Simulated scan of single mutants.
Amino acid sequence: MTTASLESPFVSAVTLLGGEGVLHAQPRVVMDWIPLVRQGLPSACVDAVVRITGITQTELAHALAIPERTLARRKREGALSPEESAKLVRFVRVVARAETVFEDANSALNWLQSPNASVGGVTPLSLLDTEIGADSVLDTLGRIEHGVFA
């Protein structure tokens, strides 16, 4: 995947994370995300993702492989750890990519939450807790976008 192919979904990722007001930054290219992830994203990003996507905090916690109690603690502390931040960015990148492919947020979320034979009969959302699972979902989205049987 080239840097150019990541720029467009990251624009939507900013929105999914609550925008510049929550991030206190306006990342425009992949490299802009590295210092944000390393310092830890504001915990308000979790609330933004829940609000904007309509998924529950429980579903988000499962998709990120972060215990709900840890997310609650991070909200009190004000920031996610770098590892948790990387997981959240991975999650919003996939959601943003699905929205681009399906050209509709509701259709994208329905697809992410529905069992799919192309990803082993599980929900794409359930695979986002690992990098390889997220890559598989992104690959499937690419095949859908290009009209290849997915």
Rank of each mutant, 00 (worst) to 15 (best):
V30L: 15
T3V: 14
D47T: 08
F10R: 10
R28H: 11
D32E: 10
T15H: 14
S43D: 05
S8P: 01
G19K: 10
R28A: 14
V22H: 06
A48T: 07
P42F: 02
V49Q: 00
I34H: 11
V49F: 04
E20G: 08
T15N: 11
S12M: 12
T2R: 11
T15F: 13
F10P: 00
L6A: 12
I34M: 12
G18C: 05
R28G: 11
V46N: 01
V30W: 12
A4R: 14
L6C: 10
Q39Y: 10
S43M: 03
G18H: 03
V50S: 06
V22M: 08
R51G: 06
L41Q: 03
R51E: 12
S43L: 03
L41T: 01
G40H: 07
S12E: 12
V50W: 01
S8N: 13
S12Q: 13
L23G: 08
A25N: 13
P9R: 04
F10M: 15
M31R: 15
D47N: 11
S8F: 13
W33Q: 05
L16I: 05
V11G: 12
M31S: 15
C45I: 02
P27K: 06
T3G: 13
P35R: 12
M31A: 15
A25E: 13
P27W: 01
I34G: 09
L36W: 01
G18Q: 03
R38C: 07
H24A: 15
W33D: 03
L6R: 12
L23T: 10
R28M: 10
A4Y: 10
H24P: 01
L23F: 02
V37E: 04
T2F: 04
I34T: 15
G18K: 04
A13C: 14
L16D: 00
P9E: 02
A4P: 00
S43K: 02
L23H: 07
L17F: 07
L23R: 09
I34N: 11
A48V: 04
S5M: 08
I34Q: 15
G18A: 06
V50C: 08
A48Q: 07
V22E: 08
L16W: 02
V49R: 01
L16N: 01
P35W: 07
Q26G: 13
A48D: 06
Q39L: 12
T53N: 02
A13W: 00
L6N: 11
H24L: 15
Q39C: 13
E20N: 09
R51M: 07
V14M: 07
S5V: 07
S5D: 12
V14E: 06
V37L: 06
A25S: 15
D32L: 12
A13E: 05
A4I: 13
T53Q: 00
R38H: 11
R38A: 15
P27C: 10
V30K: 14
G21H: 07
T15L: 14
Q39H: 15
P42C: 10
C45L: 04
S12Y: 08
R38Y: 05
D32K: 11
T2H: 07
A4F: 11
I34S: 14
C45R: 01
V37W: 00
V29W: 05
A13P: 03
L6D: 08
I52R: 05
V30P: 04
A4S: 14
A25I: 13
P42R: 03
